[in-house]
Amino acid sequence: KAKLLVLLYAFVATDADTICIGYHANNSTDTVDTILEKNVAVTHSVNLLEDSHNGKLCKLKGIAPLQLGKCNITGWLLGNPECDSLLPARSWSYIVETPNSENGACYPGDLIDYEELREQLSSVSSLERFEIFPKESSWPNHTFNGVTVSCSHRGKSSFYRNLLWLTKKGDSYPKLTNSYVNNKGKEVLVLWGVHHPSSSDEQQSLYSNGNAYVSVASSNYNRRFTPEIAARPKVRDQHGRMNYYWTLLEPGDTIIFEATGNLIAPWYAFALSRGFESGIITSNASMHECNTKCQTPQGAINSNLPFQNIHPVTIGECPKYVRSTKLRMVTGLRNIPSIQYRGLFGAIAGFIEGGWTGMIDGWYGYHHQNEQGSGYAADQKSTQNAINGITNKVNSVIEKMNTQFTAVGKEFNNLEKRMENLNKKVDDGFLDIWTYNAELLVLLENERTLDFHDLNVKNLYEKVKSQLKNNAKEIGNGCFEFYHKCDNECMESVRNGTYDYPKYSEESKLNR
C-alpha cells in the first residue's frame, strides 16, 4: 500500500503543469573576455578590431598615390635624371617610397634638414613645378651647363633637372645676384646647392675665386655659405661634395641669391598645395585598381571598426592602431551559463540550468507544459528593451572611439638618435595607453552587458513569482510547478501579467 502511494505521488508530481523562465541559446562559437572571465561563450557579439588588409596600394578616395619607385624624396625633388618619370607629377593622395629606393642625390652630399622637408611634404597633396630662374636668361655671365658622370643618364654625363651647376664663363666668375618674388599665391619650395671641391685647383678651375661665398636671403631665411675645400674619400667617382638646401617662400615674399662661386642654382621650384589627408609611407606593396579610405604600408583597410592592429602608420580615415589581438564586445547572452554566478555589478545569474535553442524569437521568455502540450514563448517587451539598450551602447562606444585619422611616422637624422629613441618611447607609451583603454573598455562593457542580461532574466522570474504567489511552488531551476490546472489561456495570463490569483487560489489551497 505504501509503495502504491509513492508511485501515485510521483505520477501526480510529474503530471503537474509547469512554467519556466529562460533565455535564448544557439550554436554560436563566439567568445568574449570580461573583467572576471576569459573566453566566455556568448550567443552574439561584435568585433571592434580590424585585423585584415588587402595587401595592395590603392587610390585614396579615388585619387591615385605618387609612387616614387626607384627614387626617394631627395632624388625626386632635386631632379635626379633617373627620376625623370616623376617630373610630370602634379597631385596625389599620398606618397609612396620603397624601403630600398636607390636614386637620391646622384652627386654625393646631403639634403640639409631632410627630415623636416619630409614632414612638410606629408601635408602636401599637389604642386606646380615651374621655372623659377629661366636657364637661358638668368645667368648671362656664367656657364650653366655643368654636368657630371655621377648623374649620368643613358650613358652620358648629366645633372639634376631642377638645378643648374653654374661655373665660370671664360676665365671669370663675376659676382651674381638674382631674385624671385613669389607671385603664386601659395608657398613655394625653393631648392639650391653649394659645391665643396676637393682641392684649391678644382676650386680655381671651376670658379676662378679662391674665397667664394654663397648667400641666400628671404624674410624668414638668411644664410651665408662658404665652400669647404678638403680631400675626401671618393664616392660615386667624386672627391667633391654638394650640400643641398631648401626653404619655403611665403606668398609675396622675395628670395635673393648672391654668389661669387660654388652656387648650384635653382632652375625649377614648386608651388605647394596642402592636403590634410596626405602623407608619406614606405612600402613594398604594389599598386592595383582599387579604392580605399584608409591606406597602410601593408595594404588598404576598408573598415568602419574603431581599432586596427595592422600597422601604426596610416593615411586617410583609419581606425586607431592598438596592439590588441582581440577586441570583441558582447551583444547577446551567455551561451554556457554559470550556476549560481554573481556578476561584478550585482546581477544574479545561473538559476537557469541552460539556455534554450528552441526559443528563437527572443532573448528571454517562457517554456510551459500542461495537458494541452508544451512550447516556448519569447517575452518580446523585455527582449526589445534589451536590444535597444545594447545597440545604443555599442553604437555609442564605437562612435566615441571611432575617431579616424592619419598617423604618419616621424623623421630623425643620424645625429638625432637620442631624440628618436625618446620619441619611440613616448609613442610606445601612448600606444600602451590606447591599447589598455580599449581593452579595459571592452572588458568592463562585456561584464556589464552579461550582468544586464542576467538581471533581465531574474526580473522576469520575479515578475512571475509575484503573480503566482503560493498558487505554485519554485522547483529550483527557474521553473514553477502549479498547484492547479493551468491551461493555455492561464499560461498566457502569466506571461502577459494578467494572471488571476484569486481564481485559482482555492484549487491551489486544496492541492498544497
Results as ranks from 00 to 15, higher is better:
Glu119Pro: 00
Val147Gln: 08
Ala2Glu: 03
Glu97Phe: 12
Thr177Glu: 11
Ala265Gly: 05
Ser198Val: 08
Trp246Pro: 02
Tyr114Val: 06
Thr31Gly: 10
Pro197Gly: 07
Ser126Lys: 14
Asn162Met: 04
Gly146Asp: 07
His53Arg: 12
Ile255Gln: 05
Asp33Ile: 04
Gly155His: 06
Lys70Ala: 08
Tyr244Gln: 03
Val147Glu: 06
Ser278Asn: 15
Pro99Arg: 12
His196Arg: 02
Pro108Lys: 05
Leu48Asp: 04
Arg274Ser: 10
Gly75Ile: 02
Leu163Gln: 02
Trp267Cys: 11
Gln120Pro: 00
Ala269Val: 02
Thr282Pro: 00
Ser150Asp: 02
Leu248Thr: 12
Arg129Asn: 05
Gln203Pro: 01
Lys3Asp: 01
Trp92Pro: 04
Ala230Gly: 05
Lys175Ile: 13
Lys186Trp: 00
Pro65Met: 11
Glu119Tyr: 10
Thr282Tyr: 02
Tyr244Asp: 04
Ser179Met: 12
Gly185Arg: 15
Thr98Glu: 14
Met242Cys: 05
Ile19Ala: 05
Phe257Gly: 00
Ser126Arg: 13
Glu187Leu: 12
Tyr9Pro: 02
Ser198His: 10
Val40Gln: 12
Gly109Glu: 11
Leu248Cys: 08
Gln120Glu: 05
Thr260His: 07
Tyr180Leu: 01
Glu258Cys: 10
Arg236Phe: 14
Ala265Asp: 08
Ser123Arg: 13
Ser91Asp: 11
Glu50Asp: 12
Glu116Asp: 11
Asn262Cys: 04
Leu117Ile: 14
Leu68His: 05
Val32Asp: 15
His239Lys: 00
Asn54Ser: 14
Lys234Gln: 08
Phe276Met: 03
Tyr23Asp: 05
Gln120Gly: 01
Val96Trp: 06
Val6Cys: 13
Tyr268Met: 09
Val194Glu: 01
Gly62Thr: 08
Gly55Thr: 11
Thr18Met: 08
Leu163Val: 12
Gln203Lys: 03
Asn182Phe: 09
Ser123Gln: 10
Glu202Leu: 08
Cys106Ser: 06
Pro81Ala: 06
Arg224Glu: 05
Lys1Val: 11
His195Ala: 05
Lys168Val: 14
Tyr114Phe: 08
Ile73Cys: 05
Ile95Cys: 10
Gly170Asp: 12
Ala271Cys: 01
Gly193Ala: 15
Glu115Trp: 08
Val147Lys: 14
Ala64Gly: 12
Pro227Glu: 00
Ile255Phe: 06
Val235Gly: 00
Val194Ile: 15
Asn220Met: 08
Glu187Trp: 10
Thr282Ala: 12
Trp139His: 09
Tyr23Glu: 08
Gly155Cys: 07
Asn209Ala: 12
Phe144Gly: 08
Leu66Ser: 07
Arg118Pro: 03
Tyr94Gly: 08
Tyr94Ile: 00
Pro81Ser: 05
Gln238Asp: 00
Thr18Asp: 00
Lys156Asn: 02
Ser215Lys: 04
Gly210Phe: 08
Tyr244Thr: 07
Leu189Cys: 04
Leu57Met: 11
Leu121Tyr: 02
Leu5Glu: 00
Ser215His: 01
Leu86Cys: 08
Leu57Ala: 02
Glu131Thr: 05
Ala10Trp: 13
Thr148Pro: 01
Ala259Glu: 02
Asn222Lys: 03
Cys71Pro: 03
Asn39Phe: 03
Asn211Ala: 14
Thr226Asp: 04
Ala10Thr: 13
Ser218Glu: 03
Arg90Ser: 09
Val40Lys: 08
Tyr9Glu: 00
Leu78Ile: 14
Tyr114Asp: 03
Leu48Met: 05
Thr98Pro: 08
Asn47Phe: 08
Pro174Leu: 10
Ser85Asp: 15
Cys20Val: 11
Ala259Lys: 08
Tyr160Phe: 15
Pro88Tyr: 14
Leu36Asn: 04
Ser208Ile: 10
Glu250Thr: 12
Asn243Met: 12
Leu77Glu: 05
Asn26Ala: 11
Ile19Trp: 01
Gly252Thr: 13
Leu166Met: 00
Leu176Ser: 11
Asp113Lys: 02
Thr43Glu: 07
Glu50Ile: 08
Asp201Met: 08
Asn178Val: 14
Val96Ala: 10
Leu191Pro: 04
Pro140Tyr: 07
Asp171Trp: 02
Arg236His: 15
Val124Asn: 04
Pro227His: 07
Asn141Gly: 09
Gly185Trp: 01
Arg236Leu: 15
Tyr180Asp: 08
Glu136Met: 12
Glu250Gly: 13
Ser198Phe: 15
Val40Ala: 06
Ser157Gln: 09
Gly146Cys: 05
Leu206Ile: 11
Gly261Ala: 11
Tyr245Val: 01
Pro174Trp: 11
Asn72Arg: 07
Ser179Lys: 10
Glu250His: 12
Lys61Arg: 12
Ser150Asn: 09
Lys234Ala: 13
Arg223Tyr: 09
Ile281Phe: 14
Leu68Arg: 14
Asn54Asp: 12
Arg118Ile: 12
Asn211Trp: 07
Glu250Leu: 13
Gln204Cys: 01
Asn47Cys: 03
Trp92Arg: 00
Ile132Thr: 04
Val124Trp: 07
Cys83Arg: 12
Arg118Ala: 05
Pro197His: 13
Asn26Val: 01
Ile229Leu: 14
Met242Arg: 03
Thr31Val: 08
Asn80Glu: 05
Asn27Asp: 14
Val42Met: 12
Ala64Met: 14
Leu78Thr: 10
Leu68Val: 07
Ser126Cys: 01
Ile35Pro: 10
Phe257Pro: 00
Leu263Arg: 00
Phe133Arg: 02
Ile35Lys: 07
Leu127Gln: 08
Ser123Leu: 08
Ala16Glu: 04
Leu127Asp: 00
Asp113Val: 00
Pro108Arg: 06
Ala271Val: 15
Ile280Arg: 03
Tyr23Pro: 00
Glu277Phe: 07
Pro99Val: 12
Thr34Val: 05
Asn162Pro: 03
Phe270Ala: 04
Asn103Gln: 13
Arg232Gly: 05
Gly155Tyr: 00
Pro134His: 03
Ser28Thr: 15
Ala13Thr: 10
Asn178Phe: 14
Asp30Phe: 06
Leu8Glu: 00
Gln204Thr: 11
Asn103Glu: 15
Lys169Arg: 15
Ile280Lys: 04
Lys234Thr: 10
Cys151Met: 05
Ile132Pro: 02
Lys169Val: 08
Leu36Lys: 01
Tyr244His: 14
Glu37Ala: 13
Thr247Pro: 00
Asn27Lys: 09
Asn262Leu: 00
Asp15Gln: 09
Arg274Ile: 03
Val190Cys: 11
Arg161Tyr: 08
Trp246His: 02
Phe270Gly: 01
Gly185Pro: 04
Ser198Pro: 12
Cys151Pro: 06
Tyr221His: 14
Ser28Ile: 03
Leu57Val: 03
Ala217Cys: 12
Val188Gln: 03
Tyr107Ser: 05
Pro108Met: 04
Glu128Pro: 06
Leu164Lys: 07
Ser101Ala: 13
Leu166Cys: 08
Pro108Asp: 01
Asp110Cys: 03
Leu4Gly: 01
Gly79Val: 07
Phe276Arg: 14
Ile73Gly: 02
Asn47Arg: 09
Gly62Ile: 01
Ala265Val: 14
Gly62Val: 02
Phe276Lys: 12
Val6Trp: 12
His239Trp: 00
Leu176Phe: 12
Tyr107Phe: 12
Arg129Ser: 02
Lys38Pro: 06
Lys169Asn: 10
Pro134Met: 01
Ala16Met: 09
Asn72Ala: 09
Ile63Val: 15
Ala230Ile: 10
Val149Phe: 15
Gln120His: 14
His196Ala: 14
Ser198Thr: 04
Val235Trp: 01
Asn103Arg: 05
Glu136Leu: 11
Ser101Thr: 14
Glu228Leu: 09
Ile95Val: 15
Ser126Ala: 12
Cys71Ile: 08
Glu119Asn: 11
Glu250Trp: 11
Glu115Leu: 03
Asn211Gln: 14
Val194Lys: 00
His24Leu: 15
Gly252Lys: 09
Glu119Trp: 10
Lys234Phe: 11
